[in-house]
Design a protein around this nucleic acid. Structure first.
Lengths: 176, 176
DNA sequence: ACCTGAACACCGTTCAAGT
DNA sequence: ACCTGAACACCGTTCAAGT
């Protein structure tokens, strides 16, 4: 699809807003993600952002999506499955506060809830694909593996202990 | 300690505030827990609550604590450990949105973070006590069991599936 | 000791109006 | 199509003042 000049302008403006949102989210969390604040930062009227994003929730989703895509693009495509799981868990640990916020907001916003489901399903599919036919009851195993990883992330342990527990879980749940 | 009449009055007022807070928290979550709203509900000035609770976070902690104590008082004291774990997980599932909010708020409030640590430590101790000497590496096993339960709670599964996964985890992680 | 009245700074969001 | 100006309702919190 060929893009018109105005379309490119629009994309740039949206990108500028999402960029500001992403930076604020990573710096100070959800409470730093202020629609009014971003508008001030970009030097426009405080309600200008609403032309591009109908609610703050939509902007939140766009910002989180940008963050997750960056990670997804850098993820290792080969190597032992358990190593790749550890890699992903490491990245997610850095984003843990943000993920907790998303979980919390999902209870109040269908937009965020839908996005969260989408992301989780992607993760599940990747994991099912990676485990392949190495395991009997794929669904339960994946469910438990995701669950234990989420639980470990919640603990916010030191990296050595976290890695050890992930490997130990993998051993006991998958190749045990 | 003998209590004076004024002390009893004070306790009643505090109880009324905490009760309103608890009800709001269970009904509509954190965003329904409005200091101003509670004051209106009790028919006092909108800042009157601040005499008893220095910040909204303190009130939040008091309300959550009241909720958790109710559960704690009803918990089964005997029976197979795995059954008791299932019972607690069932109760916590009902409170899951609240727990997620607490987790989220803990990143912004040291008061809430401290309370959360306190609760978690209590859980850990109860579990260590319950598992007793049935297991070799108690610390890791408890850590993994708590982690997998947290992860399962996060999934918000149907009760049958949740119970099945908890039992399955217990089997594989503890008595496996 | 306990509470009120009034204010402050900040929000997300809406709407009519301009270009 | 895109943005501004001005407003609305709501917040947590502070502070001086009253009883």
């Amino acid at each position: 699809v060929p893009k018109t000049r105005t379309q490119l302008d629009r994309d740039e403006k949206v990108a500028a807003i999402v960029d500001a949102a992403r930076r604020r989210l990573l710096d100070g969390g959800y409470e730093s993600l202020s629609v009014v604040g971003i508008a001030r930062e970009l030097g426009v009227a405080q309600n200008a952002v609403y032309w591009y994003f109908p609610t703050k929730d939509h902007l939140f989703v766009a910002a989180v999506d940008a963050i997750l895509r960056d990670i997804f693009d850098r993820k290792p495509r080969s190597g032992p499955v358990v190593d790749r799981v550890v890699w992903v868990v490491d990245r997610l640990q850095e984003l843990q506060p943000l993920r907790v916020t998303m979980r919390d907001r999902a209870a109040r916003s269908e937009v965020i809830a839908a996005y969260e489901r989408e992301v989780l399903e992607l993760f599940r599919l990747l994991l099912v694909g990676a485990l392949g036919d190495d395991v009997d009851d794929v669904d339960d195993t994946v469910e438990l593996l995701v669950a234990v990883c989420e639980g470990i992330l919640l603990r916010e342990l030191s990296r050595p202990r976290r890695v050890r527990l992930v490997r130990e879980s993998y051993r006991r749940l998958v190749s045990g």
